[in-house]
């Protein structure tokens, strides 16, 4: 690990000012950052520890949603009865990720900002445009079975690893941030991430020193919420494909559906195409399959990850069948 200066931030303004310095980074749970620092993939000159800041707690919002502080641990969010009763999708997604020990440390803000687990991002002997801009992408022709198939670039096919963020995207969650100048803004989770394009090392729209303060969940939409994760092991593995679905239906038709995929893109993939296809559609396998075809129409496999495209369609079908109690 490279040497760094360690600073325990006393207030939000000081934290943002410190983290705006070149090569400075916020640290909260550290479950991803410390690992990357050991491997010298991350080499911050300064760590700004934000754990003493008042960014904890889960509170009700005026619109009858919930506001989850950035420092709320994944465990605490998944254990909260309001989350479990009103946003079971989110609790399921959080519990689908990592292990008990990691969830006790990992935070809401940090989970959103975790880095990809692309094996070539981790292998410092190989080219990676995300780790070493301009060096190339070893995943394109490499062992890419965990990599992305939607909105990929020839510079990077890394997938975002979070489960939590997939559920939040389906729930239309918004990120509240505060910047160095004290200004705040609200960013939909869906708009937090930047497509890889020519700059896959720039992953979010956050500015230097901009701190995630909380995640705001709007009131839960009507319908059954399900998070289904497909992975290599029964537990404690990243998603090959996951589906977050919120489906409202009557006896014959889907009234409203929200669909987001994990494991397929640089961000949690909200599929407006699948949602449009489903709305008003019958509760049939053909209808669910049509939604899957729509969702994956622009997908592109790179060899080892070709299987993700049919797997995503089938996972969507199974999730919709479970959500509607059909098939």
């Amino acid at each position: 690990m490279k040497p760094f200066r360690y600073e325990r931030a006393r207030d939000v303004a000081a934290a943002c000012a410190s983290a705006a310095e070149p090569a400075a980074k916020f640290i909260a749970g550290g479950t991803n950052l410390v690992d990357l620092m050991k491997l010298q993939i991350e080499t911050p000159a300064q760590l700004v520890d934000i754990n003493a800041l008042p960014l904890g707690g889960i509170e009700e919002t005026a619109e009858q949603g919930l506001r989850i502080g950035a420092l709320v641990t994944n465990s605490a969010a998944a254990a909260d009865m309001r989350v479990r009763r009103r946003y079971p999708l989110l609790a399921q997604a959080i519990l689908a990720g990592a292990s008990g020990q990691l969830r006790n440390k990992a935070t809401t803000g940090g989970n959103l900002l975790q880095r990809t687990r692309c094996p070539y991002f981790y292998d410092t002997t190989k080219p990676c445009n995300k780790r070493a801009p301009g060096s190339g992408c070893a995943a394109l022709a490499g062992l890419n079975r965990m990599n992305a198939v939607l909105d990929v670039s020839d510079n990077c096919i890394a997938a975002h690893p979070s489960d939590m963020a997939v559920a939040m995207t389906a729930l239309d969650a918004r990120v509240e941030t505060v910047s160095r100048d004290g200004s705040t803004r609200t960013i939909p989770v869906d708009a937090l991430y930047r497509a890889p394009g020519d700059t896959p090392h720039i992953e979010t729209v956050l500015e230097p020193g901009e701190l995630i303060r909380a995640v705001v969940l709007p009131p839960p939409p009507p319908g059954r919420q399900i998070y289904r994760k497909v992975r290599d092991r029964a537990s404690y593995a990243f998603a090959l494909v996951s589906v977050a679905a919120i489906v409202a239906h009557d006896e014959n038709r889907v009234q409203d559906a929200r669909i987001a995929f994990g494991g397929l893109s640089y961000k949690p993939w909200r599929s407006a195409d699948a949602e449009r296809t489903l709305a008003g559609g019958a509760l049939t396998r053909a209808s669910y399959d049509a939604a899957g075809v729509a969702a994956l129409a622009n997908a592109r496999g790179y060899g080892h990850n070709d299987f993700k495209i049919p797997l995503a369609r089938r996972t969507l079908r199974a999730t919709l069948a479970e959500a509607t109690g059909t098939i």
């Binding site: 360690y6 640290i27 479950t31 410390v34 520890d49 465990s75 020990q101």
Partner: peptide
């Protein structure tokens, strides 16, 4: 609470 002590900086 249980944690992985290998991913925790002692100073934190």
């Amino acid at each position: 609470q249980r944690i992985n002590s290998c991913l925790a900086l002692a100073v934190m």
